[in-house]
Every structure is written in C-alpha cells, then in structure tokens.
C-alpha cells in the first residue's frame, strides 16, 4: 500500500516533465537535454525523499520503548521516543498502528498479559494526548509470550519489557 503511494508520487513528478519535453519538440537539442536532466534531477530528489521517508518509517517501527519491572508508567526516554513517533504519525495521517505490550518472563502469564495491556495503553494514551486520533491506535498485549531475548538475566529482561509498534 505504502509502496504504491510512492510510485504514484514519483510518476506525478516525472510525467509532467515528460509531457513538457514532448510539447517542446521543436526546440533545440540543447534545451531538450536540459529538460531531461531536470527531470532526472527531480526523480533523484524524489527517490532521496523516498529513502528518507522509508528511514523514518523504519525508525518508527524499530524503535521500542522500555519499562521498569512490574511498571507500566512511561520513563522519560520512552516519552522522547513517543514524541518522535507522534511527529511521524502527524505527517503520515493515513497510517494506523498496532501497539504491542510485552513483559519479561518473570511473574504469572496471566498478570503479565494484563501488565502488557497497561503498557500498550500507556503508550497509546500518551500519543492521544499529543493529538493522534485514538481510532488509529490499536493495542495488543502479548504478556511474556513473545520475548525478543530468551536469556534469563536482567539484560534480556530489560529488552523484553517493551512496547513495540507495527503498521496495520
């Protein structure tokens, strides 16, 4: 879906350039070349913008926020990350996201599903407070069921206590 949009955008930039080239068929070869170069430059810029946009999107998806053990309140670092995510969501207003809440393996599975739900909801509420429409933000709690690190130490646990974002 997102890829298609970019292709359309690129075509929108390139096609008028081509049309322009066609309509000026009687002009000199030199100007024709110049126009082609300009079109090329435009498409280059477009792909650069595309790359940047992709990078921003990837950052949105890859950057998790982290929590303390048995806590669902947002740490300062997590709030910074969420502000960046809100900016991205502002400039990509057609995108809906799923916020996954995760826990480390300690404690009961059942309590951890509820805790993961609270974590995802904390992130969601923060984004809503920053003006993101609530209907764009769905939460799913995985509790302790989907760790990114299966280690049994604080380092692994800290990585697993997270909220992860995916694009719907």
């Amino acid at each position: 879906m997102r890829k298609k949009l970019w292709i359309i955008l690129a075509l929108l930039l390139v096609i008028p350039g081509l049309l322009f080239t066609a309509s000026c068929a009687k002009k000199t070869v030199k100007s024709e070349l110049a126009v082609t170069a300009a079109a090329e430059k435009t498409s280059q810029q477009a792909s650069e913008i595309m790359r940047e946009k992709m990078a921003a999107k990837n950052m949105f998806i890859n950057e998790d926020i982290y929590f303390d053990f048995d806590k669902s309140n947002l740490l300062l670092l997590a709030q910074d990350v969420l502000r960046r995510k809100a900016e991205w969501l502002w400039s990509n207003s057609e995108v809906s996201v799923i916020i996954e809440g995760h826990c480390d393996e300690r404690g009961t599975n059942e309590y951890n599903i509820a805790l993961g739900d609270r974590r995802a909801e904390s992130a969601r509420n923060f984004l809503v407070d920053l003006g993101i429409t609530g209907s764009r933000l769905t939460t799913i709690s995985y509790g302790e069921e989907r760790p990114v690190d299966s280690g049994r130490n604080e380092e692994a646990w800290a990585k697993n206590r997270r909220a992860h974002f995916t694009i719907e």
Binding site: T108, E110, Y111, I113, A114, L115
Partner: peptide
C-alpha cells in the same frame, strides 16, 4: 472497580 490491573 479499580484503575489498574484486576486479574486471575
């Protein structure tokens, strides 16, 4: 009725 976790 409690804003927080109630479970199990």
């Amino acid at each position: 009725y409690n804003m927080g976790i109630d479970v199990s």
